[in-house]
Simulated assay, not measured.
Amino acid sequence: MSQVKVIGIDLGKSTFHLIGHDFSGREMFRHKYSRSMLIDFLSIQDKTIIAMEACCGAHWLARKCKSFGHEVKLIPAQYVKPYVKSHKNDYIDADAIAEAATRPNMRFVSVKSEEAQLGIVIRRIRSGYIKERTACMNRIGSILLEFGLSFPRGHHQMKNLFQWIADQKELPPLLLGELTAQFEYYNQLNTWIKEQENKLLALNKENEVAKLLQTIPGVGPMTASCCISAVGSPQDFDNGRNFAAWLGLVPFQYSTGGKPRMLGISKRGNKELRELFIHAARAVMWRDNTAEKFFGTWLLDLKCRKPFNVALVALANKLARIAWSVMTTKKAFEVRV
């Protein structure tokens, strides 16, 4: 076993398939384990490279392997696919993972900390509550529409729901009971959303990087928290341009035969973080005084020359590059006059 260079693990919910390669790339063993058996197996192995796809459950297992002294390499699933030979099964996938991990130019994903994963969980639950709240509001509007009432759009209208109904027409008591139940559920969702936001604030209260990120114009606690959770290590990116490209805030390139062709933004990478940077840019763009204060005439001239959304994405790209610099240098954003 001391000759094992890399162990590729194909992750599953309850079963895990392993293949070990020696230093010449030959297969040395293949095993199928349950979760508890896998932990026992890895705990007695000599220190080696453990390779996995960066998917569900990978970061927890990676931290476990690191505690045993192993070197862990997490690979994006799309980079493993070219190494899958012929048909697809769990052992072939594990073999492809082990081979991909040995490539000199392979790109890897940093292992996320437990705190970073907790931040992701809290934000996902909050996003679910927001979707349910919107669905509840639409449900109330559709019920009223069936009885000839067109309720005004927007969450700010919901607090005056029953006063608005009373001003319109009399409704059946049973219908009012149903609307009351939905309205109470809507208010409960608002409470839960606020609780999730407070949890995020408490989680990042002592995080210095989160405080530094919030010095960037338009970046608030939610964007800062998402940055810390999504980016395991800013050193994974050579520069801010690579970070912005990873987020999908650059044009998609389709060039061949020496003819460059740039399309719309690629929208690849972390969808949540890209969306938050877009919102951050929009918060800055709406206020000309703020835009000029932090970015000079560059942004105002861009707004005049280009459509609003084009300028918006350009500013989001700039904010992402600034965020990478702040995370790398551990220095607050400063306005250069």
Rank of each mutant, 00 (worst) to 15 (best):
V72Q: 01
I75T: 04
E27A: 06
E195A: 08
V4G: 00
C226H: 05
K194N: 15
A77E: 05
G20E: 06
F295G: 01
V72F: 02
N190L: 02
R126S: 12
V121P: 00
S14V: 13
Q117P: 07
E208I: 12
G177T: 10
T256G: 13
Y254H: 13
R336N: 13
R268D: 08
I120T: 14
E115C: 00
V121Q: 08
I278T: 11
R261P: 07
V231P: 04
T134E: 04
R133Q: 10
E195C: 05
I165L: 09
S43M: 10
L118P: 01
A283M: 08
K5Y: 14
V84A: 01
T328F: 01
V335Q: 06
R321T: 02
M137Y: 12
W164A: 09
A100Q: 06
N239M: 11
F41E: 13
A62T: 08
I7T: 15
D238A: 15
Q235C: 01
D288F: 03
K318G: 07
Q182R: 12
P307A: 10
M285V: 02
R123K: 11
R63S: 12
G269E: 14
K199H: 02
K199T: 12
G264C: 09
E292G: 00
M37W: 15
P260T: 04
K211G: 14
A77V: 07
V219G: 13
L179P: 05
G119C: 03
R241N: 09
R124S: 15
A58G: 08
G258V: 03
Y33K: 15
R287V: 00
V231G: 06
L145F: 09
S225C: 09
K13W: 08
G154D: 01
K73L: 11
E132P: 09
F294M: 00
G177Y: 11
F183H: 02
I120P: 11
R139D: 11
K205E: 14
F252G: 05
G69T: 08
L176H: 13
K169H: 12
C55V: 15
R139Y: 06
K73M: 06
M222V: 15
C55E: 07
E184R: 08
Q253C: 10
Y254M: 03
G264V: 04
L276Q: 09
K194A: 15
K331H: 10
D301M: 05
N187Q: 15
M28E: 09
T134A: 05
A51N: 00
Q117L: 03
L11N: 06
Y79L: 07
K47S: 14
H279D: 13
V6W: 08
I7Q: 04
L61D: 05
K73G: 00
E197W: 11
C304E: 15
D167S: 14
M285Q: 13
H70F: 07
